[in-house]
Design a binder for these strands. Structure first.
Lengths: 350, 350
DNA sequence: TTGTATGCGTTATCAG
DNA sequence: CTGATAACGCATACAA
């Protein structure tokens, strides 16, 4: 019932101009006058073909517009050299992480297959899609799945988790040392002379509990256990703004450390509207060093995660486990770095 | 004779626990006790299998952890139902566009294959990669390639350009009506009572010339041709800040329309530092309605592009050209929408 | 250095 | 509904 036989010059007429069929290895073999196998050898860069033959084959390929077929190649060789990356397109942090994975993968001879989680596509769906393409490793950024589900996946494919560990299985984990980040913030403020430093908490969000713990331990280590204050909030502007309003009800601290930049910005806005000067009356530190932090007019002191380092580790970990089947999974927490900008200064009394 | 020889439990030992090989259709056919062809029919959702059989097959697939192989499927059927999307990971606008393409593609039964352009991967490279995976259509967001190169690509695959047209070939183009956006901004300001409205130009960047032209025509249409002022700038904070400093040298206009949000923010910062109150002394309009515009403390009136509409059009266009081979390529410019926030108000004298 | 034969997992067609 | 058979484009041992 496929009645549309669109005869594109089927007859004996000339058909050199536009090949209506994608050229294959057979076409270029015939064009050059060698066997298909030899063409395969040349395209894989294996030895077994003379320099002259290589040249002629590449020439013919360029002329005919030939391009190796990834599907056929992966199917036949049972080796796709592809790594799936699961991440959330709406999170700039994750997008930036992915961007840095490319050079690392390329250098090791692997391709990246992007699996974007969006409001319409859950993690399950994306993992399934990636696995259908036979990716050999999977890098899951900010996993939301429960541990059991990821355990099952780790059974089929090498797995790396970025951001947090949700699995007990043979899985590499790379994350930011969140606690160290807030510790650096505390130490920066203490060095400036602050003592009354309040933490705007991130609630149940990823990394938030470590950031809080880091704050608390650092305060304690500096003899400021008595000054510890934690205001419950979250990771949004609105959370930060609400925390700011609560802060305004009582005597202000001289500095706050927010669980992330968004919350810091919401708080900043409330403070400025209330006539609180930053950094003269109040120092503010964010977390993530997002693009917002760098904006003129915000210029927020913030904690930067080592994104290139995390991307690099994730790629190398999965490739190593692919190459060395018995390598033990590793877990690592990379140190962040405090970026000092205009929202922190010595407190009034100092 | 090729049918039965892949005996799973060949040896006498039990090895049911962990299949060390990825299950295939043959495995699940054998498990259920039907033919492989029938399993194929069921997984393709074609008619020819009883309800009962379907159920048993899906059950067995779930039990064995079977997943259809996209590589083999695409290779054999010569139909991947995959659309390649070329975009720049570092541009939030493009990322958001891609996010909105998913539901549209899914609904039409197509998959998206993401081809991210990064500092280490040029457009050429990405196009090549996408084509190797046999995607049937290609959506190029913000094309940088020269026309000739894209013409050649349009020859191999259905092509849609988003953002601007660089090709003369059979290509669909969807873009924002940039001129209409600045016209809306002008009309908003005129309605508020402004007459001295200056444009902060976007230089050679995409869309900038249309935005400038829209401003000029709208001013003229409102009898304000004599008030037209264009300050050369660009798309960055710094460009906007420099333009702001130039503005401060002379008598200020009552309103400015920046070529994009970034420039508006840079200008905003310079103005606020110089003691110019916004919107009391100066109204400011941005373009793009980026995440920055929505930030508390910025709250920028801005022109929002119809991102879902553009994504939708792009997907539908490429799918239509796939299904209806003779459909003529379309070009369309979608109307943007002005989002009024806190940086615009009536001028002093009004 | 080059050619031959086989199969990867699937779709697709055909006759039973 | 079954079972056999032929591709799809390529990789890869093995023969020449």
């Amino acid at each position: 019932m496929v009645e549309q036989d669109r005869a594109r010059g089927t007859g004996p007429g000339a058909r050199e101009r536009r090949p209506d069929r994608k050229p294959t290895m057979a076409d270029i073999a015939q064009h050059v006058g060698v066997s298909r196998a030899l063409v395969s050898i040349v395209f894989r860069g294996k030895e077994g073909a003379s320099e002259e033959t290589r040249r002629r084959i590449f020439e013919a390929a360029a002329e005919l517009g030939y391009r190796p077929d990834s599907l056929a190649r992966g199917l036949r060789s049972n080796r796709t050299r592809t790594l799936g990356v699961l991440f959330d397109l709406r999170r700039p942090f994750e997008v930036e992480l992915v961007e840095h994975m490319y050079p690392a993968a390329e250098q090791l001879g692997y391709h990246l297959l992007l699996g974007a989680v969006t409001p319409t596509r859950g993690q399950e769906h994306v993992v399934d899609e990636l696995l259908r393409y036979r990716c050999e490793g999977l890098i899951v950024v900010g996993p939301d799945l429960d541990g059991h589900r990821l355990d099952a996946i780790a059974d089929e494919v090498r797995l790396v988790e970025v951001g947090r560990a949700v699995t007990r299985g043979p899985v590499d984990v790379v994350r930011n040392d969140d606690a160290l980040g807030t510790r650096q913030a505390v130490e920066h403020l203490v060095a400036l002379g602050h003592r009354r430093i309040t933490h705007i908490d991130g609630g149940p969000n990823p990394g938030a509990s470590d950031r809080r713990a880091g704050y608390q331990r650092a305060m304690t280590d500096h003899g400021l256990a008595g000054e510890i204050r934690v205001v419950p909030a979250g990771y949004t502007d609105e959370d930060g703004a609400a925390a700011g309003r609560r802060l305004l009800d009582g005597p202000l601290p001289t500095a706050v450390i927010a669980a992330n930049d968004q919350a810091a910005i919401g708080l900043l806005d409330v403070m400025l509207r209330a006539g609180v000067r930053v950094p003269q009356d109040l120092s503010v530190v964010g977390y993530d060093d997002s693009r917002f932090a760098k904006l003129p007019g915000i210029d927020l002191t913030s904690v930067r995660q080592d994104i290139p380092g995390m991307a690099d580790f994730a790629i190398k970990a999965v490739v190593e486990r692919l190459d060395l089947p018995e390598r033990e999974p590793k877990q690592i927490a990379l140190p962040p770095q405090l970026v000092v900008r205009g929202t922190t200064a010595a407190p009034h009394g100092a």
